[in-house]
Write a protein that binds this DNA or RNA. Structure first.
Lengths: 152, 152
DNA sequence: CCGCGCGTCATACTTTCGCATGATTTTGCC
DNA sequence: GGCAAAATCATGCGAAAGTATGACGCGCGG
């Protein structure tokens, strides 16, 4: 509790010092420099924010996959309830099979052993299906595929 | 906490010293307006970048979100529907919070940025919660926590 | 026959996870 | 004030996961 007060006091002190400094220049240098400084500050603060958001945070990919919102029928569309989702995303049956195992929390090695293929093959399928889902991690892939109704 | 106060005091001192230094040069040198401006510019540009990346970071954007919600189950019964599950497993609130982020497919780094903690901290929480869930992978942890009703 | 999609596999490399360990700090409670 | 749980952070290491690239065989339609 005391610490917050202490910090608060320090912050206050610095703020006051800053204000006094600004005021000093304001009085001595008839406005121009102060205004100049403020303008520059605002300008570059904005530029910095822009830079920060635009350049230093391009980590997002906008994955737009054209999913029609209509959602027509509660009556099931006959034979392929989620198969359509799969095909619409260009995901093969085998890839979906791997994805299901991934969703169960199995490692690539375990999946390979369960399906009698090499771990490398599992990795390949994973990479492909992750790419088609716009995911970069298996957890993300699972989450997205559940959102899309690809997985239960 | 003493440490932070110390650091804060030091930073404050340095700031004041810097300001005085700037002022000194401003008074002594005639054409130091440019220097003044440049310093302010750098200062606020840095602040802006920091703000942009840390506070206003957009982070990961999901564009399509077609989820067919078919009349979800009636709202939770009692007061603490899943809180008991959590406590029974000895999982803390913070750990559950990390787990939720894990389930959303975020990486440890992203989780750390989202919660304003270091990646190492996220790892620690992950390890603990994985252990408490008897899981060895994050996908497994998510799967199990959903089975247990810990996560939706 | 030839191309193409699919499944399989490998090699090499980078990145992320997960684990162990120890430390400091914060917080809630007595 | 002091204790215990919880939260934070770091370091180091091995194991997984993920990326990139190339290759091979197989069935199928043109």
């Amino acid at each position: 509790m005391r610490k917050q007060v202490l910090i608060f006091g320090l912050v206050g002190g610095v703020l006051v010092a800053l204000l006094q400094w600004i005021e000093f220049h304001f009085l001595v240098l008839e406005h121009s420099v102060a205004i100049y400084g403020v303008l520059i500050a605002i300008l570059f603060a904005g530029a910095g924010i822009w830079l920060g958001t635009k350049l230093l945070a391009p980590r997002e990919r906008i994955v737009d996959r054209i999913v029609e919102i209509t959602t027509p029928a509660p009556p099931a569309p006959s034979a392929t309830p989620e198969d359509n989702i799969r095909e619409r995303l260009g995901i093969t049956r085998r890839e979906l099979e791997i994805l299901e195992h991934v969703a169960r929390g199995l490692s690539n090695r375990e999946i390979g052993e369960a399906l009698f293929v090499s771990e490398n093959t599992v990795k390949t399928h994973c990479s492909r299906v992750f790419d088609k889902l716009g995911a970069r991690r298996r957890t993300e892939a699972v989450q997205r595929s559940k959102e899309l109704g690809l997985l239960a």
